[in-house]
């Protein structure tokens, strides 16, 4: 349930509509609800096994070693 503090943002109907819209939407489709707390002790190291690391290295080796030299961008904002 989303709490809203009183603030004049138009009619009561609009406020209720906004709340209804927010309740309807799943905020975390992967099953961890907002407010879920991570375990008190975080991982000390990434738990990456050898096959997984091999896959990552395989993908990195496919990268053109010279592509940074081809990347020519203008300065933006």
């Amino acid at each position: 349930m989303i709490q809203r503090r009183s603030r004049d943002r138009g009619s009561a109907w609009e406020t209720n509509l906004a709340e209804w819209e927010r309740r309807e939407r799943p905020v975390d489709p992967l099953g961890k609800p907002p407010g879920h707390r991570e375990p008190e002790t975080g991982p000390a190291r990434p738990d990456i096994n050898s096959p997984s690391k091999d896959n990552l290295l395989k993908r990195m080796r496919k990268v053109d070693p010279k592509q940074a030299e081809r990347y020519r961008q203008r300065t933006g904002e």
Binding site: A68, E69, Y71, R72, Q73, R74, T75, G76, E77
Partner: peptide
């Protein structure tokens, strides 16, 4: 851009 020093946001 590492080579030219350009930046964008």
């Amino acid at each position: 851009d590492h080579e030219t020093g350009a930046t964008f946001g």
